[in-house]
Every structure is written in structure tokens, then in C-alpha cells.
Amino acid sequence: MADPVDGESSATIRVRVEKARVIQRERLASYGLHANSAMAARHIRKFCPLNEAGQKLLEMVVDKLGMSARSYSRILKVARTIADLAGEENIGQMHLAEAIQYRGLDRKLG
């Protein structure tokens, strides 16, 4: 945090977040939901499909770290949000890996 980094400005990040929120509201509106965090298991199955490589990665992490079904769902929701922030229709391995990393940090802090 002390090193100056040429990253996105706050205004640019705000625009990306606002776009992601619109994507989520539109995707989930017919279910009475407004954000990925509110998705239930049936919504996760519909809106968070993984390709074979992504599925294998998540299964490996769940097995190695002994994560619960709830943790599995949380990772998928976060990965969906990361993909939305990137403007991607599908969850890629990069999005999934980032979500897994956040979950690992959460476990260490909690």
C-alpha cells in the first residue's frame, strides 16, 4: 500500500462496479434478487457454471482444504462477481482462482 502503483483510478473502479451491479440486477431481477450474494443453490447452478478445468480446480481446493458446501457456494458467488467486474459472461479459471484466494485469506483472518 505504501508503494505508488499505476492502477485504476477510483472513478474508473466506480464505473466498473456500477456496471457489474447493473449486470447482476438484470440477471437476477426475475428471481426477486439484486446481487450475486443473494443467490441460492439453484441460482448458483444456473449462473455459475464452470468449464471442466474450473470444476477440477475447485474440487481440488475443496478436497485439500476440507471446505464445506457453504464455502464452495461462496467461492462460486465471489467468482461470478469477479467475472462481472471484468465484464466477462463466463467464470474463467482466473476469476475462480482469485475467489479461492480471497476465501483462503478470509479463513486465515477469521
Rank of each mutant, 00 (worst) to 15 (best):
Y72K: 04
V78K: 04
I91T: 00
R107Y: 05
E59A: 08
A29N: 13
A38S: 14
L57M: 10
V17W: 08
M67G: 06
V22G: 12
L76Q: 07
L85D: 06
D84S: 08
A99D: 01
G104R: 09
K46Y: 05
E26A: 09
K19G: 12
R21V: 03
V15F: 10
E18G: 09
A86R: 12
V61D: 04
V62L: 02
M60C: 10
L57N: 10
D3H: 15
K46C: 09
A99F: 02
S10I: 02
D63P: 12
N36T: 08
K56A: 13
Y102L: 05
E98I: 00
S9I: 00
E52T: 15
K56Y: 10
A86G: 15
R42V: 11
G32V: 08
A86D: 14
V15E: 13
R45P: 03
D3T: 15
Q101N: 12
L50S: 11
L28D: 11
R25K: 15
L109W: 10
G66W: 04
K64Q: 14
E59T: 13
A83H: 10
I100A: 02
S68K: 08
P4V: 10
S73M: 04
P4F: 07
A53D: 13
G54L: 03
M60H: 15
D6L: 06
L65N: 06
K56H: 14
F47G: 06
G92I: 08
L28Q: 01
A40L: 06
Y31A: 12
R27T: 07
L109Q: 11
G87A: 09
L58V: 06
G92D: 04
L33V: 02
R80N: 01
G7A: 01
V15K: 15
L65C: 11
R14D: 14
I13Y: 02
L50N: 12
A53W: 04
T81Y: 01
A38D: 09
R16D: 06
S73H: 14
G7Q: 04
R42P: 09
A83F: 04
S10R: 14
M94D: 13
A79F: 07
R21W: 00
A2D: 13
E88Y: 12
R21N: 05
S73Q: 14
R45C: 07
I13W: 03
A2W: 01
L105K: 03
I82L: 03
I13K: 11
E8W: 09
M39S: 05
S37H: 10
L50H: 05
A99G: 09
R14P: 14
I75V: 05
Q55N: 15
H95C: 03
L50M: 12
I82D: 01
C48P: 10
V5G: 10
A83V: 02
A40Q: 12
A29L: 08
V17E: 05
V22Y: 15
A29I: 09
R16F: 01
F47Q: 02
S30W: 07
G92S: 10
S37A: 09
